[in-house]
Design a protein around this nucleic acid. Structure first.
Lengths: 296, 296
DNA sequence: ACGTATCAATTAATTTTACTCATGGGTCTT
DNA sequence: AAGACCCATGAGTAAAATTAATTGATACGT
């Protein structure tokens, strides 16, 4: 009645993949190559299938091995994090608030909330992540993050979303642009414009989903930029137009020759949501963060 | 450099919670109580925090212990499933296709696809699950299922959704109902009707999201029923009306005195989607299932 | 209130396991 | 063809896990 698939096995598969050989993995793990060879051999016997094909002096993962590697990449981070979190709990520390960002421009806003939070909770660290294998919701569900900042809430059992921030999405144009003096623009007006956005898929860009798509309009060209600074430099120099939160764009208006226009007569209104797991409802510092965010 | 949090620890925490005592857990795991006491004691020393409060002769989880239990409930199923899947792979079996259902009436449709699939892939088993802690998407992301049947796709990085089935959602009324002879109804017509649905939240019922809510209509009463049979028995006996897929309702029309009405002049059209992980794109039998489903 | 049953912790003895060392057989490089 | 590199194997040993036996504490029944 032997359980057999252990943490060490996943660790080895992962380390071998990372370092290229059993020997290198062994050095990394501070044991001999022989130890790992024995250990993995036992697992292979137990499973009844090899994990690697021994080709000359190198190892290539079998299908079973690839499955193990995939498992390792999913499970090991959880174990590692849990262990460190338990250590933190033991020392009486509050732990780390892991924040995931699904919203490029929110970063600036987040910084303004994080800083008073760190003061109010000196024993809680903050960690911000931006890339997720399965999107922000996936990261929340698989405990890779504890809090998700997103303009795009997704109500599912086990998750809570709180709206914490209202803002208006506006179009940013150079202030010598032909449209610069208008109060608002229509979707049609963008048909012959170059649109600058962050590099994410159009279905996650509000300017498309809420403004252009309903009107069936596609801009002349679509360019992307990772950073707001560069993006607005491009706008100022007449390379295109961009859609950003008003509060963010306004900060740049003092530095760059820009004008802000409403999107449609009524404007496009947005909210930022904070997503959490229901399980974490009673985590004090998490609730506190949301309260703090709401009060801004 | 001692790694320490092992599978056995999670197993013990889970087993103690399940069986109420260390002794019972030990029996379950085919070891002595002493062994578990030692093992867990070592972990507590390593972490620096107790896992249980010893109250008289019983154990109560500390906060750290609860965290461990939560971790165990998330991680152990993955390890257990992985181990059995690897054993299957070793024996040359294809494995199990775990299907999650987020759509009550789809069950009937699914059965029609599963049966030819089982014939075409004799070495693949099928398992159908209906309850998910974090919704269908969560189950997909955390590898609790491999395929999600849903009317409500959710595009996220790492997931694919394929539309496999178009159908019309219709209103089912008894055939002696005052509206029974009409071709279609308006939302207003439901204001004084009793509505029968499956027991899920209204935001996941198309009749609300696509028909009633836009018109701001609330039915006189809302009753729920777990099964289609009972629901339509109720409809036939004049206790209310129900919204169901046309193909499903039509099957009952031969047995029960029912009439089907379009929802609104244009009718409400729906699709069933099959959700998978991008990672599984190359799993033959999964692709085959989707193809098979599409061809119906 | 007393005896009995149950449960967890502890100690010491024992078994099992994991690891290292030493070695051999491959393969690739130059 | 030599040297470097890599993995597998077998035997011995150190370490760890497990057991058996016992204790102390608590609940329960009569």
């Amino acid at each position: 009645m032997g359980l057999m698939l252990e943490r060490i096995h996943l660790t080895v598969v992962q380390a071998v993949e990372q370092h290229g050989s059993l020997t290198a993995a062994a050095k990394q793990l501070c044991v001999t190559q022989s130890a790992l060879s024995h250990t993995m051999r036992k697992l292979e016997d137990h499973l009844g299938t090899p994990i690697w094909l021994r080709e000359g002096r190198s190892l290539r993962l079998t299908q079973a091995g690839q499955y193990l590697l995939n498992l390792a990449n999913r499970v090991l981070p959880q174990l590692n994090y849990a262990e460190s979190k338990l250590h933190q709990m033991a020392k009486g520390e509050r732990g780390t608030l892991r924040i995931g960002m699904e919203c490029h421009p929110c970063y600036q806003w987040l910084l303004k909330v994080v800083s008073p939070f760190l003061e109010a909770w000196p024993d809680v660290d903050v960690d911000v992540k931006q890339k997720f294998q399965f999107g922000g919701v996936g990261a929340l569900l698989s405990y890779d993050i504890d809090l998700l900042v997103t303009p795009d809430p997704f109500y599912k059992t086990g998750l809570c979303f709180d709206a914490v921030f209202d803002y208006e999405q506006v179009l940013v144009v150079p202030n010598n642009h032909t449209m610069a003096t208008r109060e608002y623009i229509e979707a049609e007006d963008l048909r012959d414009q170059v649109l600058l956005t962050y590099p994410v898929t159009p279905d996650r860009l509000d300017i498309y989903t809420q403004f252009l798509n309903p009107a069936g309009v596609v801009p002349k060209r679509h360019k992307t930029s990772e950073t707001t600074d560069i993006m607005l430099q491009m706008v100022a120099s007449g390379r295109g137009v961009a859609a950003l939160p008003r509060w963010l764009a306004e900060e740049y208006c003092t530095k760059l020759p820009l004008a802000l226009l409403r999107l449609g007569q009524g404007g496009v209104d947005k909210q930022i949501y904070l997503g959490t797991r229901e399980n974490d409802n009673n985590v004090e510092y998490l609730r506190a963060f949301i309260e703090l965010a709401r009060s801004y």
